[in-house]
Design a binder for these strands. Structure first.
Ligand code: SF4
Ligand code: SF4
Lengths: 141, 141
DNA sequence: GTCGCTATGCAGTTTACAAAAGCTGAAGAA
DNA sequence: TTCTTCAGCTTTTGTAAACTGCATAGCGAC
């Protein structure tokens, strides 16, 4: 019941891109260094994000990644689900066949509620919002 | 970012006790068999619950475990936190020292919000409620 | 009081998956 | 052509979850 590194790195990566001027291209090496993320690990994560068209890849010299959409249009949920697939607190909330008690299990019901709330939160916030928060905090200090 | 077996087993265990007549004593072996849980694993979990005085242990012949409190008074949060300690989606929400960016990190802020919501849900529901849900569902079918 | 039953406590082992690294290739710009 | 950067796959490493075993201690029954 923990946020994984892949999810954290992915979010930090897209947030980094979100702060840049729209459409600009940034190589993986720069992101990895700026955020202190193992480059090959980040590469794998960005492949997923690329397939989900959250990010666009550009090969060759001066290549790298750019955001594929306006940060205002990308929710945290989209980013997270691109990395690890649909999110579930417990497997049986996804697939009732896993457990024969699923039909009656009250724990499953509670976790379904919790899960929906959690996803709701991730859906309610966009990358642009998070960047705003960051700026607000930094200007205070 | 997943509910662990220990947490699931612990919940199933106390729910099983909650359904029994108050104060009655049930041996671990019965719970383990009824819920298809490895007995020794459940034993470890119940030790934590015992230390947290959610459950009371009784040794010797016809010994076992009984609920230490009224199911109406025990929240899901208490049970879960007895098993795995205070719950955190990511380590830095607990301890800002882990990351030098913690002060400004917007991801940390978002996860703190999500975490609070999640804990809130677990705090808002008691064992008695869950047992009710279960009964309601079973009577329908 | 002693015998059998049940929890206690701790030290393991095994398994599973996250996290990271490595390598070969393909695409693209200069 | 050549260098740069991503793509895709395999393998390694690390760590925590999941489970097991055993020796001990408390308690009840008789
Ligand atoms: S017991 Fe309940 S929570 Fe556990 S797997 Fe079955 S349905 Fe899901
Ligand atoms: S980067 Fe943000 S989320 Fe990751 S550890 Fe630091 S504060 Fe927490």
């Amino acid at each position: 019941m923990q946020f994984t590194k892949a999810e954290e790195y992915g979010m930090l990566g897209v947030l980094y891109l979100s702060e840049k001027t729209p459409g600009s291209i940034t190589p993986l090496s720069e992101i990895a260094e700026a955020k202190a993320i193992p480059e090959k690990f980040l590469a794998k994560i960005f492949q997923s994000l690329s397939r989900a068209t959250i990010v666009r890849s550009h090969r060759g010299v001066r290549g790298g990644f750019s955001l594929a959409k306006d940060p205002k249009e990308v929710t945290v949920k989209e980013v997270l689900e691109s990395i690890h697939g649909p999110y579930h607190l417990i497997k049986c909330t996804n697939n009732a066949d896993i457990c024969e008690k699923a039909e009656y299990c009250s724990l499953r019901e509670l976790l379904s509620i919790a899960e929906r709330k959690l996803i709701q939160i991730f859906e309610d916030h966009t990358l642009a919002e998070l960047v705003e928060w960051e700026k607000a905090k930094q200007s205070v200090s």
